[in-house]
Computed example of a mutant assay.
Amino acid sequence: MTPDSLLTADSRTALITGAASGLGAATARRLAAGGTRLALLDRDRQALADLADELGVAATPIDVDVTEPESVERAMAAAVAVLGEIRICVNAAGVATPGRVTNGVRPLPLERFRQVVDINLVGMLDVIRHCATAMCGNTADEGERGVIVNVASGAWHQGQRGQAAYAASKAGVVGLTLPLARDLAEFGIRVVTVAPGLFDTSMAAGFSDALRAELEQMVLFPSRLGDPAEFASLVEHIAANRYLNATVLDLDAGIRMV
């Protein structure tokens, strides 16, 4: 078997959360172009359907709300039924709802903080626990049964003003990496986290030209926002490179946020 057997085997399959847009959609396009069969999970039904139409019969859209355990369980069962075996799991679902801890008069609503953590961290773990369990039943390929790629953010250690909830949730994703890898090693499942910097996704679509220029000045080289296709390329490499495990990879062109 070659080291990239997760991508070259006839049974190559992937589940992607947050698949309807941004980094998730870019990853879906990259993997689909290489022949991977996909289960695309998101709560935006229309955008999900549009992407599935674009990618064709190899992509199956599955509606999910990662904050609802019953929804996650149904979506995972549907994904397994469609794909048979899940070899690659990419957790890209996330939100970046801003809010300072206080404006000097009123504190940050606790529910706003909780919602971000529920989606970015608790919801991610819910998907992981089901996906890892499904992977345990996969046929081993040189001992390997699957790989889980989680999306954190450079905000986990460079959080800006108004990012308390987002930074805390992404720090939790980073903190999960090693214990998850340790839990799953005996089953032949790898866990890798990617911490992207600033990428040109829908989150950046509302930036003014002035704000975009200010942010790009924080990036060492190349001094621009990342292309989602560059993220997708890294995910593809992680799936192919068996010796990547239990680590966090910064993909940020050396940005230093202030």
Rank of each mutant, 00 (worst) to 15 (best):
T2V: 08
S5Q: 10
T8L: 12
T8I: 14
R12I: 00
L15A: 12
T17Q: 08
T17L: 10
T17F: 10
G18F: 05
G18S: 06
A20D: 03
S21W: 09
G22Q: 10
L23K: 03
L23S: 03
L23E: 02
G24K: 02
A25E: 03
A25V: 04
T27N: 04
A28S: 08
R30H: 13
L31A: 05
L31M: 04
A33M: 09
A33D: 13
A33S: 15
A33T: 11
G35L: 09
G35Q: 10
T36N: 06
R37I: 10
L40V: 08
L40D: 03
L40W: 08
R43D: 04
R45T: 12
Q46F: 03
L48G: 00
D50Y: 04
D50C: 11
L51P: 05
A52T: 05
D53L: 14
L55P: 07
L55Q: 11
L55I: 06
V57M: 00
V57R: 03
T60Q: 15
T60W: 13
I62M: 09
I62H: 12
D63H: 15
D63T: 14
D63S: 15
V64G: 07
V64M: 06
D65H: 10
V66W: 01
E68I: 10
E70I: 00
E70Y: 00
V72T: 09
V72C: 11
R74G: 02
A77G: 14
A78M: 05
A79W: 12
V80Q: 05
L83I: 09
G84F: 03
R87W: 12
I88E: 07
I88G: 07
N91H: 04
A92E: 07
A93Q: 08
V95A: 08
A96D: 13
P98Y: 08
G99I: 12
T102P: 05
N103S: 06
N103G: 11
N103K: 03
G104A: 01
V105C: 00
R106E: 04
R106K: 01
L108N: 01
L110R: 09
L110S: 12
L110N: 02
